[in-house]
Simulated scan of single mutants.
Amino acid sequence: MGSVVYKQLLRRTLFSLGQGDPEVAHERTMAALVRLSKVPPAVTALRRAFGGKTQHTVFGVTFPGPVGLAAGMDKDGRALKAWPAMGFGHVEVGTVTRHAQPGNPKPRLYRLPESEAIINRMGFNNAGADALAARLAEVGPVGVPLGISIGKSKVTPVDEAVEDYRHSLRALHPFGDYFAINVSSPNTPGLRGLQDRAALDALVGELRRESQELSSTPKPLLVKIAPDLTDQAIAEVLQVCADHGVAGVIATNTTLARNGLTAAERPVGAEAGGLSGRPLGLRARDVVAFVAKETGGALPVIGVGGVFDVDGALRLLDAGADLVQLYTGFVFEGPQLVRRINRAVAAR
């Protein structure tokens, strides 16, 4: 699917659905992808056209391409076979929580087309860890590495968060190739406080021990960090990662900052929630570069934030990312973006 065709036809149609309600467009897109994932010949044909041609081994896992689908797009793993068909070298589902939850009240998703950004305050709407485990058992192998992002349920007090995360890790441990510990979403009250050194030390330490008890070959654990942290706070997160043998970090989550919005879209920018998209690109790259410098390149990084073209992806990789993930860039640019990045990396 060419970029022009996607933008002029499919994207225009999707953006107009439900009188422009982005969540309606998202749900209808997901429904179409669920149908696609059930047609093996179509999946195979698409994968030949869009798939990556390079292998990347990161934290002991081999990825067939450098571009992954970020968490949030397919929280409940509904269209797992469709994503590799569009060239994604890994898929991260979630963020999933111990308890099923509807998320925050609607409206909670805002598209800013002039700024090429999205603001969301979804609030980890998902069917729960046990439901995801049942679906993954039914689906079987996805064909590319599967990451699972786990977070805290809204009903769970912060001082009981460790057990909440631990339940999700136990339920989903057989299915994930790696697990992302999401402590950085701005849309669950108190969650970002888990990035504080003492709280993160307790959480990561317990999850690391749990993973070791569950298997003689523990699954890699990654910590997903916020772009709004200071360098000192990031350094403290990295020290916790080093203390507990964390396999890597995902940099970054959405931001509370509103830099880079057009004048016309600044009123929408006043909506609460995390911002993703092109305005986040520079900060995401800066965080990736800081992590790489602070750790001497020893800690693997999945870079995510503001990737809308090949140049943006290559800059993130050059800053120190081992892999990149897409969400908002994929919404605006379509699957052709995945293909272009795959080809550019293979040509280097």
Rank of each mutant, 00 (worst) to 15 (best):
K293Y: 00
L132N: 13
H90R: 04
L200T: 05
I250A: 09
T95K: 02
V155T: 14
Y178F: 13
E213L: 11
T156S: 13
R340D: 15
V58Y: 09
V237A: 01
H99P: 03
S276M: 00
K38A: 15
D201L: 10
A71D: 05
E271F: 10
D159P: 00
K154R: 15
R339L: 07
L132I: 13
L221D: 04
R258F: 06
S16E: 00
E271R: 15
G320I: 00
A298T: 15
A202W: 04
Q8R: 05
Y6T: 01
A137H: 04
P41R: 13
G296H: 09
A347Y: 02
A131P: 09
L221C: 10
G65V: 02
G89D: 05
V58M: 09
L136S: 07
V287M: 14
V246R: 05
R35D: 08
S185Y: 05
V24C: 00
S149T: 08
V183E: 01
E333K: 00
G52L: 05
K293A: 14
P335L: 13
T57D: 09
G306R: 02
Y110S: 03
D76V: 14
A137T: 10
Q325H: 10
A100V: 05
L172G: 07
P84S: 13
G68L: 01
V162G: 13
Q101L: 01
G176Q: 07
A180H: 11
K38I: 01
G296C: 06
E333T: 03
G143H: 12
A25D: 08
A346T: 08
L316A: 09
S16P: 03
A171T: 07
S185L: 06
K38C: 11
V268L: 15
S276T: 10
G140K: 07
K53M: 14
R192G: 04
L207A: 07
F88D: 06
P105N: 05
Q19K: 00
L191G: 02
T62G: 01
V345I: 14
P84L: 12
A251V: 12
Q8W: 00
E236D: 13
N187G: 07
A233Q: 11
G190D: 15
V291C: 05
V96H: 04
L221Y: 04
E27D: 01
V338K: 04
A292K: 07
V144Q: 06
V268Q: 10
D177I: 10
F332Q: 02
T217P: 01
R315H: 15
S184L: 06
G312V: 10
L314N: 08
F15N: 02
D318M: 06
V162I: 15
G52H: 05
K154W: 03
N126D: 05
A202Y: 04
A313D: 10
L136C: 06
H173G: 08
I234V: 15
I341E: 01
F175C: 00
E92W: 07
P174E: 11
R197V: 08
A199C: 00
G297P: 09
A235G: 15
P300R: 08
M30A: 08
